[in-house]
Measured scan of single mutants.
Amino acid sequence: ETFPLDVLVNTAAEDLPRGVDPSRKENFLSDEDFKAVFGMTRSAFANLPLWKQQNLKKEKGLF
């Protein structure tokens, strides 16, 4: 299941849709939104070091 970017960005855990893991908001973006937000594919993002993934998520309001 995916959700629009505005539902996930800068949203407190208690305000997220049911079933969304607040530590993994990026997994609930569509592939198109994911690429638009991070400028890379999911596989490229997954290959980044964890610290870099976290920094990007913070920068984009998805942490």
Rank of each mutant, 00 (worst) to 15 (best):
E59S: 09
N10K: 07
P17Q: 01
V9E: 05
R18S: 15
K25C: 06
T2F: 15
V9F: 06
F28L: 06
N47L: 11
L8T: 04
E14L: 08
D33G: 03
L29S: 01
L56W: 04
P17Y: 03
S43I: 13
L56V: 07
Q53M: 04
S23F: 14
S23M: 15
G39D: 13
F28I: 03
E32C: 08
N55E: 14
L29R: 01
L48G: 00
D6L: 11
L56M: 12
S23R: 07
M40R: 01
K25N: 03
N55V: 11
P49K: 02
A12M: 08
F28R: 06
N47M: 11
M40A: 00
A13L: 12
L16P: 13
G19P: 09
E26Y: 03
F45N: 00
N47Q: 13
G19A: 08
L56H: 04
L5P: 07
D21C: 07
N27P: 02
G39C: 12
N27M: 13
P4R: 03
F45V: 00
F3A: 03
E26F: 02
L56P: 00
K25V: 15
F45P: 00
T41A: 09
T11V: 14
E32P: 09
V20M: 02
T2K: 11
E32H: 12
T11G: 15
S30N: 11
F34V: 01
E59L: 11
K60S: 08
V20F: 05
V7P: 01
A36L: 15
L62P: 03
E14M: 07
N55Q: 13
F45E: 00
E32M: 10
S23Q: 13
K35D: 15
E59I: 13
A36I: 11
V20C: 09
K58L: 10
M40H: 02
D6H: 15
D15H: 08
P22S: 06
N27R: 08
F28K: 04
E32A: 12
N47W: 10
A12W: 07
E14D: 13
N47P: 00
K25P: 07
E1W: 12
W51E: 11
S43N: 13
M40T: 03
P22A: 10
Q54D: 15
E59Q: 12
N10Y: 10
N10M: 07
V37M: 06
L50I: 13
V7F: 15
N55H: 13
V9I: 14
L5M: 07
A12L: 10
L29C: 02
L62C: 04
E26R: 00
E1S: 12
T2M: 07
D33C: 05
D15F: 06
Q54N: 14
L50R: 09
G61R: 05
L8P: 01
L8I: 05
F28W: 15
K25I: 15
P4K: 05
T11Y: 06
L5C: 06
L56Q: 02
V9S: 06
L50T: 13
A36P: 00
K52Y: 13
D31T: 09
K58F: 10
A13N: 15
K52S: 13
E26T: 02
D31N: 09
E1D: 11
K57G: 01
V9H: 06
P17N: 03
K52A: 08
A36C: 09
P17G: 03
A46T: 11
R18D: 15
N47Y: 11
E1G: 11
L5V: 09
E26K: 01
F28A: 09
A44R: 09
K58M: 12
S23C: 15
W51T: 10
P17C: 10
P17H: 03
K35G: 12
P49Y: 01
G61N: 08
E1F: 15
E1R: 10
P22C: 07
A44G: 08
K57V: 06
V37K: 02
V20Y: 05
L8E: 02
F28G: 04
R42P: 07
K35S: 13
L48R: 00
L48K: 04
P4N: 09
L56N: 01
A46Q: 13
A12N: 11
S30Q: 04
E14W: 05
D6G: 09
A13Q: 10
S30D: 09
F63V: 09
W51V: 11
R18C: 15
L8A: 03
L50F: 12
R42H: 07
G39N: 15
K52Q: 14
D15M: 04
P17W: 03
S30V: 03
D21W: 03
P4W: 04
D15R: 03
T41Q: 08
K60M: 09
A46N: 12
D21R: 02
G61P: 02
Q54A: 12
A13K: 10
K35V: 12
D15C: 14
D31E: 12
V20H: 06
K35Q: 15
D15A: 05
F63I: 10
T2A: 08
T11K: 08
D33E: 09
E1P: 14
K35P: 02
L5I: 12
N47S: 14
T41M: 10
M40G: 00
W51D: 11
F34E: 00
F63C: 12
P17F: 02
L48T: 01
W51N: 09
F28E: 05
N27G: 07
E59A: 12
L48Y: 05
F3H: 08
V37D: 01
G19Q: 10
E26N: 02
V37R: 02
V37S: 04
E14Y: 02
D6F: 10
A13H: 11
V9D: 03
E1Q: 15
W51F: 10
S30L: 03
K58Q: 11
L5H: 05
S30R: 07
N10G: 09
E14Q: 12
N47H: 11
E32S: 11
F3K: 03
Q53K: 08
F38N: 00
D31I: 07
E59R: 10
P22G: 06
Q53V: 01
G39F: 09
G61W: 04
A13R: 09
L48D: 00
N55R: 09
S43E: 13
A13T: 14
D21I: 04
T41K: 07
L50G: 12
L29E: 04
M40F: 04
V37A: 10
P17K: 01
D6P: 07
K57P: 00
N27T: 10
S43T: 12
L8H: 04
F38K: 00
A44E: 14
W51R: 11
D31R: 04
A44D: 12
V37P: 00
L8V: 04
N27Q: 15
A44P: 00
L50W: 14
M40V: 06
Q53H: 00
K60G: 06
A44C: 12
K35Y: 13
S23V: 08
K58H: 09
F45D: 00
T11R: 05
F38H: 00
F45T: 00
E26S: 02
F38S: 00
D21Y: 03
W51Y: 12
A12H: 11
K52C: 12
K52W: 11
S43R: 11
A12E: 08
N10V: 09
T41N: 12
E14N: 08
T11C: 11
E14R: 05
D31A: 11
G19N: 08
G61V: 01
M40L: 07
K35F: 14
A44H: 12
E26H: 02
N10Q: 09
V37W: 02
Q54W: 13
V37C: 12
P49I: 01
G39L: 12
L16W: 05
L16V: 07
D31G: 06
S43C: 12
L48F: 05
L50Q: 09
A12D: 09
T41G: 10
V7N: 05
E32T: 13
T2G: 05
E14V: 09
T11Q: 07
F38I: 02
K57H: 01
E59T: 08
K35E: 14
L8C: 05
S30P: 02
V37T: 11
R42S: 04
P17S: 01
R24K: 14
P49T: 07
S43M: 11
E14I: 08
L16H: 05
L48I: 06
N47T: 13
L62Y: 05
L5G: 03
A13M: 10
V9W: 07
D33V: 07
F3Q: 05
E59G: 07
D21F: 01
K60N: 14
T41D: 14
Q54R: 12
V20I: 08
F34M: 01
D15E: 11
F34G: 00
A36K: 11
F28D: 04
A44K: 10
L50A: 14
P49D: 10
V7K: 11
F3E: 03
Q53G: 00
L16G: 05
L62S: 02
D33T: 07
S43Q: 14
P4I: 05
V7C: 11
Q53F: 00
K25G: 03
N55S: 13
L56E: 06
V9Q: 15
T41W: 05
V7S: 08
M40P: 00
V9Y: 06
K52F: 14
W51G: 08
D6N: 12
F34H: 01
E1L: 15
L29D: 01
